[in-house]
């Protein structure tokens, strides 16, 4: 069957007395769009931060693409092939869109500082390659017309796309998006959906956290539902949406 790309088991994360993640297990298959949903405070973002190395889990196992990433620092996780975007967009605001994406290429390039200063042939060639790749990615997400604008001057929708382009610049196997549709109008959300499907069809697995349950149901291949730090359901959207535990978590206890 489907090949497992990411596998975590028995993950616990506590903040003082708060048991933010309680024995959570997930596996994400290669090539799918996997959704993580749950009410506010369910532990979605905590899970996300564990998966991208920003939080170190207290217990559990974490393997990705055959590598052990348990408690690996963020840059190792990125080098391993997991890239993310942030719920509150975190771009380099004073740099142009193009430069933002070029920074994303750092992890896949090797010319050192000295080469950059001396402008050696190798450094110049690599720089040209980085710039070409950055242009390509801006075109891919459809914002190459604003390549030379500073990130801070871009519209909200463009900033979201730029963050995705920057994440793609690290050549991820798994692209993790933290509420990418937050604050978007229906048209932008629809465009974003098309973009995510395109990314998946081009061979990148997508992990999505989102409040917009309707979007998730139409887009994801499989969904996991978190509530109070526990996984209460996992499976294809049609099954998950009918799960009484999920309905209860979202709507409160059923009226007897």
């Amino acid at each position: 069957m489907a090949e497992v790309l990411l596998k975590i088991e028995g993950i616990h994360k506590r903040f003082g007395g708060l048991h933010a993640l309680n024995n959570v297990a997930l596996h994400i298959n290669k090539g799918e769009i996997y959704g993580l949903i749950g009410p506010n405070g369910a532990g979605k973002t905590t899970m996300f931060n564990v998966l991208t190395g920003l939080y170190t889990p207290d217990e559990g196992t974490f393997t990705f693409d055959g590598k052990d990433l348990f408690r690996a620092p963020p840059h190792i996780v990125v080098a391993g092939g997991i890239a993310r975007t942030f719920q509150n967009i975190r771009l380099f605001h004073e740099m142009t869109a193009l430069e933002n994406v070029m920074v994303g290429r750092h992890i896949r390039s090797k010319a050192g500082a000295l080469g950059a200063i001396l402008r050696t042939k190798a450094a110049r060639e690599e720089e040209a390659a980085i710039e070409a790749k950055a242009w390509e990615l801006l075109k891919y997400v459809g914002i190459d017309d604003v390549a030379h604008e500073r990130a801070r001057n871009l519209s909200y929708g463009h900033q979201r796309r730029l963050e995705i382009a920057r994440a793609l610049a690290t050549e991820p196997k798994l692209l993790a998006l933290d509420e990418p549709a937050a604050g978007m109008n229906p048209k932008e959300t629809e465009d974003l959906k098309t973009l995510m499907e395109k990314i998946r069809n081009d061979g990148v697995t997508v992990l999505l956290i989102e409040h917009d349950v309707k979007l998730m149901m139409g887009l994801c291949d499989r969904i996991a539902v978190l509530d109070y730090g526990k996984k209460i359901a996992e499976g294809v959207p049609e099954v998950v949406r009918k799960d009484p535990k999920v309905i209860e978590a979202y709507l409160g206890a059923a009226h007897s």
Binding site: M95, E99, H106, S109, A111, A113, A116, I117
Partner: peptide, 13 residues
């Protein structure tokens, strides 16, 4: 340069 870009990126975030 790439070094400068990394410096600016570091200073911003």
């Amino acid at each position: 340069t790439k070094l400068g870009r990394a410096m600016r990126a570091t200073s911003q975030n």
